[in-house]
């Protein structure tokens, strides 16, 4: 599977503000809404990495439309890539003030300086250094605030109305998933025994969160493959409840083995891309292929219910019987 990151062929920028307080606390302000995927943590990690501070020193003000800069929707698998770039730029701009002040203190050109592990030092000679604390103290004495703003908009074009050609996405996620299933040919029940999911995420900012996204995506994909269906009757949803629209329980989900592939994306923050939707998309096709591999019958509509399986098996048995008579 390959899947575009961000909104298709449309500008979809995100913005961010970063301030480094004189005590070393970093305030990150971002409109990015964390709906459980862990973006608040990942964005804090990106800022910490950029400024060479500990992630615990980064406070995130997120998704408050009254005060935070717009980051666009948490959708289209875009926040790690797009807001990630925005917060990285904001942090880098704040960092320029730090390296600028440190350059005065150390008497070296600011572009030679590196921010890492709470210090500012010369890349050429790391012994030429000053602690971040000292630089911030100097900023305070000089009345300089350490602020940075950043925004990022992926390099895309609109799509040609005639040909559909263009650059819809700045980058793509790649994934392969594998499923092992057991099919009861008398009842049509399918048990998914195991899923292995390999995902190129560019760079895993937070590997535990990436695994969480992948495992959750596989569970959604399993539901999509085998049981989930909005039934519409007379224009009305006939199963609008959790008692009639069934999603997988703990007893339905298999063990998922996640393989994180890190092929750094040049335009991504520290190489990162996205993994939201990509985690869910390959699962249903993998399960459908596994069912077809088990039965030798292809299914073209989801969910692949036990009833559809039994009907297909019966149709094949009748066809085989018919062919047998013809010989």
């Amino acid at each position: 599977m390959w899947y575009g990151i961000g909104n298709t062929g449309l500008p979809n920028p995100a913005g961010a503000f970063v301030q480094v307080l004189y005590d070393g606390t970093v305030i990150l302000s971002t409109g990015c809404a964390d709906i459980g995927q862990g973006s608040t943590t990942a964005l804090a990690q990106i800022v910490a990495e950029q400024l060479g501070v500990h992630v615990d020193d980064v406070r995130v003000v997120a998704a408050d439309t009254a005060v935070t800069p717009d980051a666009g929707a948490t959708s289209a698998s875009r926040q790690t890539y797009i807001s990630g770039n925005a917060v990285k730029k904001a942090a880098a701009n704040a960092g320029l003030i730090i390296t600028g002040k440190a350059a005065e203190m150390l008497e070296v050109p600011p572009e030679d300086l590196v921010l890492s592990e709470g210090s500012v030092f010369s890349a050429a000679d790391p012994s030429i250094r000053v602690t971040l604390q000292e630089v911030l103290a100097q900023c305070r004495r000089d009345g300089i605030q350490v602020l940075g703003a950043g925004s990022f908009n992926p390099a895309v074009t609109g799509l040609d109305e005639e040909t559909g050609q263009g650059v819809p996405y700045a980058t793509y996620a790649f994934a392969t998933q594998w499923a092992e299933v057991e099919v009861d040919t008398e009842t049509g029940q399918v048990e998914v025994l195991r899923v292995v999911a390999a995902h190129d995420v560019g760079r895993a900012v937070n590997p535990l969160a990436v695994e969480g996204q992948v495992e959750g995506g596989c569970a959604m994909g399993l539901g999509y493959a085998l049981m989930e269906e909005v039934v519409i009757a007379g224009g009305v949803i006939a199963n609008p409840r959790l008692s009639s629209y069934l999603i997988p329980t703990a007893c339905d989900c298999p063990e998922v083995t996640t393989i994180i592939v890190e092929d750094a994306e040049k335009t991504g923050p520290f190489g990162a891309k996205g993994v939201g939707e990509p985690a869910l998309i390959p699962t249903a096709p993998a399960i459908a292929n596994a069912v077809s591999n088990a039965l030798g019958i292809r299914f073209y509509d989801l969910p692949i219910t036990p009833e559809k399986i039994l009907r297909a098996l019966k149709a094949r048995a009748e066809q085989d019987a018919g062919a047998g008579r013809g010989q």
Binding site: G36, E211, G212, E215, G216, G217, C218, A219, M220, L242, I247, T249, A250, C251, C253, E255, V256
Partner: peptide, 17 residues
């Protein structure tokens, strides 16, 4: 464990963790 939490639906995690 899986039976004990089978009455608690989770849409995010896939239950493994």
């Amino acid at each position: 464990i899986r039976i004990a939490i089978s009455g608690n639906l989770c849409r995010c995690t896939g239950y493994g963790k």
